[in-house]
Design a protein around this nucleic acid. Structure first.
Lengths: 192, 192
DNA sequence: CCAGTACGAAACAGTACTGTAGCGAAACGG
DNA sequence: CCGTTTCGCTACAGTACTGTTTCGTACTGG
């Protein structure tokens, strides 16, 4: 029943097409008709797999959201500062990607309006955050942060300005900015 | 013709009603029928004042956006640090206001999708920014910032984490956080 | 090979929104 | 006070989307 390759194929096609539409046109662009036209999957087939069009959108969000967490692997010989710089720069590059420039505001608007997606948001943010906080803890252990520093706030100070620039002001995210941000969090008073 | 109080009244009612709908339900909630039902202004009257429903939405955005710039007046006797703390705290409080919690993501999504609104965005951001940069310059003149500091980046470091928390993580914006942010930008190395 | 199943195509009612048009009533202003 | 303007009301065609249903076809797995 669920092992039928036809069912798996068409379901996957629907989710992928819906995800593409989500990235291209935002949540409002994920309509059943649009998915039909894009994927060639029939209308009745979509409604056989998903109770409602909202569930299609939810599946698309599920398919898209995991990409938010970069999870860059840290090389062994790197200094904690280098790890942070690479991590923050990776986030900046990801935020500058064409797809995310359009999708991020749409996703935020969607999450703000749909309480059902709140759980997804916190999960993704947590994954994104614990990764970053882990790097910060390593830096703190190396004495690069003040003793009582709140690592959560430090994380906000690292990536907050990046999201702010991308979402609000529209200014570019340069590698120099990323280094500046890391150095502004590390070693307060001795920027070296 | 345009001095007729009837025309002015109904136009103002439409704009105000549309702005309320924009804050309450987002851009998608600003439909002609919704404005009719909310304001009592007739359908034909709305179309007599605005060529298309998009123009109604644009007028609503115009009516709502100026509120973004807080423009808190600085009291004479305050230290530059106090001015910045009050300014950042005011921004945090505004971001925590119920209306803006719902409206901000919607507005960002709208601006991201409608290139026609890009000019508005840059204008509002500029007003918001020059105000903040002005305060930062005063602090720099008082020797509270390193000599070569980029005031634009300093502004990003001040309010970026606030927007990030509000938009992405959903964490609360406490007065303590605001003070921490100001102190993290001022006097690097001498947090006092 | 063949019964069971998923499929594509197409038509359907229902809802919501846009933009237009015509009409009589009420308000404005000289 | 009376002509002009604006108003509210209602009806209308057109579009877009949702969710349901039917039917014949093609694929899958035992």
């Amino acid at each position: 029943m669920s092992t039928d390759p036809r069912a798996q194929r068409s379901r996957a096609a629907v989710v992928q097409g819906a995800a593409e539409l989500l990235l291209a046109d935002g949540p409002g662009g994920v309509t059943v008709d649009a998915v039909v036209q894009r994927t060639g999957v029939a209308r009745s087939t979509i409604y056989r797999h998903f109770p409602t069009s909202t569930d299609v959108l939810r599946a698309a969000v599920d398919a898209v959201l995991p990409e938010v967490a970069p999870g860059g692997r840290a090389l062994a010989g790197d200094s904690p500062r280098d790890v942070l710089v690479r991590r923050v720069t990776a986030t900046a590059e990801q935020l500058s990607t064409g797809a995310w420039v359009r999708a991020l505001p749409a996703l935020l608007e969607l999450v703000a309006r749909e309480p059902a997606l709140e759980a997804h948001r916190t999960e993704i943010v947590a994954r994104h955050r614990t990764d970053l906080v882990e790097h910060l803890r390593a830096a703190a252990d190396a004495g690069l942060l003040p003793v009582g520093a709140d690592l959560g706030v430090a994380a906000d100070r690292l990536v907050g300005p990046l999201f702010y620039r991308r979402l609000v002001t529209g200014e570019p995210l340069t590698p120099e900015l990323c280094e500046q941000l890391v150095d502004s969090v590390l070693t307060p008073g001795d920027p070296r």
